[in-house]
């Protein structure tokens, strides 16, 4: 049966999802800084306050630890809070609540209570913004036990993964690639659309080299494959869901070519790419024909925006990694 779709930008898909989920479940509420009257600084929550009222789309005080901390209590009172952190780096004050409570409370209640919090935030660089509007903090979140993490790279996945997060009984963090909020468009299923957590997506099929990426690095990798212009046949795997992770898809994509490069925007040391590489070392060693490479941001504070392109993984650096894998 054909599903009706609409062409939306990535941020419109997020907005569409929130409308649908608030409609579907009246225990879902949206809260954060400037999400109500203004509809969010990126307009991800536009229209929600008018449609669902100021008690279900709430302009909170400017306090990220308070936002996430009260979300814990709201869960205890039977709500399903979807909290927005205005930007990646401005989420840091909430890490205290995340680590000490959000990731532990279900465990602490010996399974008695659920904390179905969704945290969504724009993330990533390349937007020529002042300091601290550019971070890729997924590792801090994914490293926290009790927390699930997903990062869409298409408009349809932005809707589907967010819907899965909202309906999930555990706390889920969704990082939305802000660089592509308005530049990435795609067909998005209307109405109910859920992309289950834990399922990777094969973006391109190929036989020589496998690129593994997520979020804004997926379109970048597609650019690199195009730039290679047939020089190599490249498989591109979009991890989409960092936790739970689709290990089968990862291992299959690695086994298919035996040559893997992992691309991540965050700094390298202990980044999520290190986890992926460790899994390949543990479980795919006999399938590999070359060392697993990582193309990442550097281990420095995210730089001044005139030179941010030198920090970000680039088409050149991905192409370089593919060639090094081929030459090994």
């Amino acid at each position: 049966m054909a599903v009706a779709t609409r062409e939306l930008t990535l941020v419109e898909a997020v907005n569409d999802c929130l409308h649908h989920e608030l409609e579907r479940d009246d225990s879902v509420l949206v809260m954060g800084e400037d999400v109500g009257r203004a509809g969010g600084v990126f307009r991800a929550t536009a229209g929600l306050r008018d449609r669902f009222g100021p008690d279900r789309c709430i302009d909170t005080p400017l306090a990220e630890a308070g936002i996430l901390g009260t979300a814990v209590g709201l869960c205890m009172a039977g709500w399903r809070p979807v909290v927005e952190m205005q930007y990646d780096a401005f989420s840091y004050p909430c890490l205290d609540q995340l680590i000490t409570h959000v990731g532990r409370y279900h465990w602490r209640t010996k399974g008695g209570m659920e904390f179905p919090i969704t945290i969504r935030m724009p993330y990533g660089g390349g937007v020529r913004a002042p300091e601290l509007h550019d971070d890729s903090p997924e590792t801090y979140y994914v490293h926290t036990p009790g927390i699930k993490v997903a990062i869409p790279s298409t408009a349809a996945d932005a809707k589907g993964l967010l819907a899965a997060a909202i309906r999930d009984p555990d706390p889920v963090v969704i990082f939305e690639p802000k660089l592509h909020y308005r530049t990435l468009r795609g067909e998005v299923p209307e109405g109910d659309h859920v992309v289950p957590l834990g399922e990777a997506r094969i973006v391109r099929e190929g036989d020589d080299v496998t690129l593994v990426a997520y979020g804004s690095m997926v379109p970048l990798c597609e650019g690199a494959i195009d730039a290679l212009d047939g020089e190599a046949s490249v498989e591109l795997l979009d991890i989409r869901s960092l936790k739970p992770l689709d290990e089968d898809a990862l291992l299959a994509a690695a086994a298919k070519t035996g040559r893997v490069a992992i691309v991540q925007e965050a700094p390298r040391v202990c980044g999520f790419g290190a986890e992926l590489a460790a899994i390949l070392a543990e479980k795919a060693i006999l399938d590999l024909q070359a060392p697993v490479l990582r193309v990442t941001g550097y281990d420095v504070p995210y730089p001044y925006w005139t030179i941010e392109d030198a920090y970000m993984p680039s088409v050149e650096r991905v192409v370089d990694a593919v060639r090094r894998l081929l030459a090994f």
Binding site: E33, D34, A38, V41, P61, L62
Partner: peptide, 11 residues
């Protein structure tokens, strides 16, 4: 104001 959030929503 804090962006779009008025003082009465702050305190």
């Amino acid at each position: 104001w804090a962006i779009s959030t008025p003082l009465e929503a702050q305190t």
